[in-house]
């Protein structure tokens, strides 16, 4: 008779993250009992008191599955990405930040110097007359204290180490995570390495139940609060920018269910190099003007194209940072 199957060893780690992805894992609620019947968490800073040195001492490939969330912002994030790659059999980029760069990726519009100046000198709630800045090494009388080096660029996980799978979303939908977990536990055949899992392959519009017609013609773009949303018609047809056409489905169009337009956190559908560029192409196609001056007038309402179209994906887009 076979003995009980060994429990899977799971790790969840956050780099430049907000904690939302860890919460999305905790959101399995009482299903946590089923999870821990099949798996042990061996590293999860938000929930367990396991230290970095404990991870360093693990043998290679000791961890069966690591969900790595957060973008790579500094040398500690990079170190942990490489360490967890070594210690994990399967490394998953979990959530928008590790998948594409995420919201912290918007810092790629600035340089390290600009960010430090704003945060440590200029910020309205900061009093720092001596212009103290974080240093990667600082000598105190007892010895040397270290802090990670803050890089000029934010990176996604795949730009640092080889990633086995991507679970997109900000945060990913917990139900999809459970599906992935069940597939791994039951030994189902996993898709090819490098796939996006826990999501669909088509665009949001495929799932979204708002009424759409063939007739998308925009004469003006509105911010969501500028219109009286009828709750039924496609946002784009009401003139509100919705990233649905360029965004992968799989989240259950949850923002749209909450009467907010999609922001694109699930990233592009399959085989799209640069989702923001595709969205720009789509938006421009439906503007209902022909004269350059009129087109420019319509475009004036898109005040921040880079921020809107690349809100979650700036570091992994074609032009991944602002040129200095």
């Amino acid at each position: 008779m076979e003995g009980p199957k060994p429990k899977l060893k799971l790790a969840v780690y956050w780099a430049a993250a907000c904690g939302g992805c860890c919460v999305s894992v905790l959101d399995v609620h009482e299903k946590l009992f089923d999870v821990i019947a099949a798996a042990d968490f061996v590293f999860w800073p938000i929930a367990l008191d396991i230290k970095y040195k404990d991870v360093e001492e693990m043998p290679d490939n000791h961890i069966d599955l690591t969900l790595f969330n957060g973008a790579v912002r500094n040398s500690e994030n990079e170190h942990m990405a490489k360490l967890l790659r070594k210690k994990s059999r399967i490394l998953v980029a979990y959530g928008s930040c590790s998948h594409l760069g995420g919201i912290p990726g918007l810092a790629n519009f600035s340089t390290k110097e600009d960010i430090f100046h704003r945060v440590y000198k200029e910020c309205e709630s900061v009093i720092n007359p001596e212009n103290i800045r974080p240093l990667s090494e600082y000598e105190v009388q007892e010895g040397i204290l270290e802090l990670p080096v803050f890089y000029n660029d934010v990176r996604s996980l795949a730009q640092i180490v080889e990633v086995d799978y991507y679970i997109p979303g900000c945060p990913p939908q917990t139900e999809r995570l459970i599906e992935v977990f069940v597939a791994i536990v039951t030994g189902a055949e996993l898709p090819p390495k490098g796939s996006v899992i826990g999501a669909e392959t088509k665009a949001q519009c495929d799932e979204c139940i708002r009424k759409k017609t063939e007739n998308k013609r925009i004469k003006k773009f509105y911010r969501p609060w500028e219109i009286s949303d009828d709750g039924e018609t496609c946002f784009m047809e009401q003139g509100v920018l919705c990233m649905g056409p360029a965004t992968r489905a799989g989240c259950g169009y949850r923002c749209i269910k909450g009467n907010a337009p999609c922001r694109g956190c699930y990233g592009p559908s399959s085989d799209v190099t640069d989702p923001g560029a595709k969205m720009m192409s789509a938006i421009a196609s439906i503007i209902d003007e022909k004269e350059p001056e009129e087109i420019k007038r319509v475009l004036e309402d898109i005040v921040d194209p880079a921020g809107v179209f690349y809100r979650f994906s700036l570091p992994s887009s074609l032009i991944r940072r602002k040129l200095s």
Binding site: A107, D114, I115, R118, V119, P134, E142, D304, G307
Partner: peptide, 22 residues
Amino acid sequence: VNNVYFQVPELRGFEKFCEGRP
């Protein structure tokens, strides 16, 4: 205990990159 130092090894820069975003 002679001395204790608490360090925050993270910074994302929201104070900067939110500027100019609608």
